[in-house]
Computed example of a mutant assay.
Amino acid sequence: MVEFKFRHGLREHSGFKIGQRVTMLEQGMGCDHDDVEHTLPAGSDGLIDTIEMLPAPQGLTFTIWIPVDEADDRGIVNVFDQGDGPITNFITAKETP
């Protein structure tokens, strides 16, 4: 299981926290650590890696790790900033059963 430790930036913002499981509302694309490109559909699970306030034009920025194979710690990272729109356009809190 992936464990995220607080590194820098904000611990929470906009109702979301570092390490929180989320559902991706948009398709995710990117390369894993082996440089293999993946396209993951909307509805995929994600984990909030960092929340940062960067200088303009980025502003509030969320980095989301989207697992390809969580048991093997393989995944991609997508970054969303204020220029993309509100973070709630891209993620929603994962409902617990």
Results as ranks from 00 to 15, higher is better:
Met1Glu: 07
Met1Arg: 10
Met1Cys: 05
Val2Gln: 05
Val2Phe: 08
Glu3Leu: 10
Phe4Leu: 12
Phe4Gly: 03
Lys5His: 10
Phe6Ile: 11
His8Trp: 12
Gly9Lys: 08
Gly9Thr: 06
Gly9Val: 12
Leu10Pro: 07
Arg11Pro: 03
His13Ala: 15
His13Pro: 01
His13Cys: 13
Ser14Ala: 13
Phe16Lys: 03
Phe16Cys: 01
Phe16Gln: 05
Lys17Asp: 02
Ile18Gln: 11
Gly19Ile: 04
Gly19Glu: 01
Gln20Val: 01
Gln20Cys: 03
Val22Tyr: 00
Thr23Arg: 01
Thr23Ser: 02
Met24Gln: 06
Met24Lys: 08
Leu25Lys: 15
Gln27Thr: 14
Gly28Ile: 09
Gly28Pro: 01
Met29Tyr: 11
Met29Asp: 07
Met29Val: 12
Gly30Leu: 07
Cys31Ile: 08
Asp32Lys: 05
His33Gly: 09
Val36Ile: 15
Val36Glu: 14
Glu37Ile: 06
His38Lys: 07
His38Met: 08
Leu40Lys: 10
Leu40His: 03
Pro41Gln: 08
Pro41Ser: 07
Pro41Met: 04
Pro41Tyr: 04
Ala42Met: 06
Gly43Phe: 01
Gly43Ser: 11
Ser44Leu: 04
Asp45Leu: 12
Asp45Ser: 14
Gly46Thr: 02
Gly46Trp: 00
Gly46Gln: 02
Leu47Met: 09
Leu47Trp: 06
Ile48Met: 05
Ile48Phe: 02
Ile48Pro: 08
Asp49Tyr: 09
Asp49Leu: 13
Thr50Pro: 03
Glu52Asn: 15
Leu54Cys: 09
Leu54Ser: 07
Leu54Ile: 05
Leu54Pro: 06
Leu54Asn: 10
Pro55Asp: 15
Pro55Ser: 14
Ala56His: 05
Pro57Cys: 10
Gln58Ala: 08
Gln58Trp: 11
Gln58Lys: 15
Gln58Met: 09
Leu60His: 11
Phe62Ile: 04
Thr63His: 12
Trp65Leu: 11
Ile66Trp: 01
Pro67His: 02
Glu70Phe: 02
Ala71Leu: 09
Ala71Phe: 06
Asp72Leu: 14
Asp72Glu: 13
Arg74Gln: 12
Arg74Gly: 05
Arg74Lys: 15
Arg74Leu: 14
Ile76Asn: 02
Ile76Pro: 02
Val77Cys: 07
Val79Asp: 06
Val79Ile: 15
Asp81Val: 04
Asp81Cys: 13
Gln82Ile: 05
Gly83Arg: 14
Gly85Met: 11
Pro86Trp: 03
Asn89Ser: 10
Asn89Ile: 03
Asn89Gln: 10
Asn89His: 14
Phe90Pro: 11
Phe90Glu: 06
Ile91Thr: 00
Thr92Arg: 00
Thr92Glu: 02
Lys94Ile: 00
Lys94Trp: 01
Glu95Leu: 01
Glu95Asp: 09
Thr96Trp: 02
Thr96Leu: 09
